[in-house]
């Protein structure tokens, strides 16, 4: 619109006030985390024990890795709701392809990682080239993958993993569970990509303003596709760890994880509109959810309440987030 005058940008008045708001947005979730941690410690004497903390962390790993992948996609302005079934697919495939044979480790892992990347490419392709809303595309992919997984097992869960592989999920190095080490590894890699590579900067730019990014010479289709690929790969890694932990090819293991991964990202503080947030805040989101579940467990609350809590937490998280955004 060629109006004169154009709405003039906010004149830098209260810089301090704005800085505070920004800070809160970035790290508010850590404040919540700390409070929650304190509350949990007070409410349950068992909470602060070594066994409990590490068990909790071990269980948080799959969700955590998933949420990290989801962060990439949401940062670029999209969403991936097919991750849960990709996890399930990974679990059933690895538990049956392994065949009690450790020399299979590399071929199996590479194949399934390839599949994860392929899923990501497909999601990314249809979202960018055909402009299909990511919600719809990934929901379709979700159904597809779930079905493929079921066909693969024909309803009969397999269990062909070796103790070596299972160590991935059950073992520890010193006192730290191996899954947690993997999680830390994925987290660090993600952090590096987002903050120290060009791809990371492009992801934030494309999420923040796709058109301006395009006009700056960025290939937004490629960047978007990469986020879905990364998300797919993370889902596969999470699947490996989960498979190692449960040992059996359960087709429905990833079912609730779609929503959970989105919840963790949003609660942490990454915005749906893209361009703001990151894996550091997602980590807080994952921990918040984990502590909540753990607390409910310790207090003997029925498992099903977790669903309720999850839903309420997402709602609150999203509202608080959006309010924080609309200055």
């Amino acid at each position: 619109m060629h109006n004169f005058p154009i709405k003039l940008a906010g004149i830098t008045g209260n810089n301090n006030n704005n800085q505070f708001k920004l800070f809160f947005q970035k790290y508010g979730s850590y404040a919540t985390l700390l409070i929650l941690f304190g509350v949990a410690s007070i409410l349950s004497p068992v909470f602060l024990t070594e066994t409990n903390i590490f068990t909790m962390l071990r269980q948080a790993t799959a969700l955590g890795i998933l949420a990290i992948g989801q962060t990439f996609v949401i940062l670029a302005g999209g969403i991936d709701l097919s991750v849960g079934s990709l996890v399930s697919l990974t679990v059933v495939m690895v538990t049956s392809m392994y065949q009690f044979n450790d020399s299979q480790l590399i071929p199996v892992v590479t194949t399934i990682l390839g599949i994860g990347a392929l899923v990501g490419v497909t999601n990314g392709f249809f979202v960018t080239k055909f402009r299909i809303p990511p919600l719809v595309m990934t929901l379709g992919m979700l159904t597809l993958l779930q079905g493929l997984g079921l066909i693969y097992t024909k309803g009969v869960p397999q269990n062909t993993l070796t103790p070596l592989f299972r160590n991935l999920g059950l073992g520890k190095i010193w006192i730290v569970p191996i899954p947690v080490i993997f999680f830390a590894g994925v987290f660090v890699v993600a952090l590096i990509i987002l903050n120290y590579t060009n791809l990371g900067k492009y992801i934030y730019a494309v999420g923040g303003n796709p058109e301006a990014s395009r006009l700056s010479g960025i290939n937004i289709q490629f960047v978007t596709m990469m986020t879905y690929v990364i998300c797919g790969i993370c889902a596969v890694i999470a699947g490996f760890i989960l498979a190692a932990r449960i040992g059996v090819g359960d087709n429905w293991v990833g079912e609730g994880m779609n929503l959970e991964s989105v919840a963790a990202v949003v609660i942490g503080g990454t915005s749906f509109s893209g361009g703001r947030g990151g894996v550091i805040t997602t980590l807080a989101g994952v921990l918040i959810l984990s502590i909540l579940y753990n607390l409910l467990l310790l207090e003997g609350v029925v498992y099903f309440w977790q669903e309720v809590v999850k839903g309420i937490v997402i709602l609150i998280g999203v509202i608080v987030y959006i309010r924080g955004k609309n200055r």
């Binding site: 099903f304 669903e307 309720v308 999850k310």
Partner: peptide, 23 residues
């Protein structure tokens, strides 16, 4: 009221209500 994306809200409410039913 809060200008939230519809799929987020309905998904969240789905989760809450479903969970309540399970409980």
């Amino acid at each position: 009221k809060f200008s939230l994306p519809d799929f987020v809200v309905t998904l969240a409410i789905y989760s809450v209500v479903n969970g309540l039913m399970f409980v």
